[in-house]
Amino acid sequence: MVSTETKAEMEEYLGRVPSWIDGLPEPAADHSWRIVRDFELGETELEQREKALIGLGAAAALQCPYCVRFHKAEAKLEEATDEQVSEAVGIASGVRYFSTVLHGAEIGHEEFAAETEEMIDHVRNQQAAPSDDD
């Protein structure tokens, strides 16, 4: 059960107390709201639209219809375009796809880390190279 103070906060922020809060054990209820309030809805290094799109991508990859609905609505509230919403889901699907490939092929983590470092160095060098447009 969530505390009376937390219920009041939720009603102020969201206009109601969401039903999912009742699914939490009492020791976690207030704490869970603070995570949402301070991290997901609060001011952080990421803009609200970015956080909503990340949340949507993660929700889509996890295949959680509840979180997809919430984060998609949140992204639209933050003026994300249909193209940005689609791209967030597309990126999440790519991450899930390639994660499946990497795990199924049992690619060594150290090997992958070394390859990634080489590729990042290459791209960084390409970006720093003078353009031949002159």
Rank of each mutant, 00 (worst) to 15 (best):
E106F: 02
D30P: 08
L46D: 00
C64N: 00
L77Q: 15
G15L: 03
E43P: 05
F39H: 08
E110R: 12
V36A: 09
L56Y: 05
E118K: 08
R34M: 01
T81G: 13
E45Q: 12
R37I: 08
T44W: 02
L41Y: 15
L46N: 00
I35A: 08
A29P: 07
P27E: 07
Q63W: 07
E45Y: 10
P27C: 05
E5V: 15
L102Q: 03
E9G: 01
V2W: 07
C64E: 00
A8D: 13
S93P: 05
T81Y: 10
L77T: 15
P25V: 08
H31D: 12
E87V: 02
M119P: 04
Y97V: 10
A29K: 06
H103N: 12
Q63P: 04
V95L: 02
S131H: 01
A73Y: 07
V36I: 13
S86F: 11
G55M: 09
K51F: 00
T6H: 01
H103V: 11
D132W: 02
D82G: 10
T81H: 12
G55F: 04
V123P: 02
E47A: 08
Q48T: 14
P27F: 08
E26W: 09
E9A: 04
P65F: 09
E87M: 02
D134P: 12
I120Y: 00
I91T: 06
L77K: 15
T116R: 11
L56K: 03
F112I: 00
W33A: 04
Q127I: 15
E106N: 04
E5F: 14
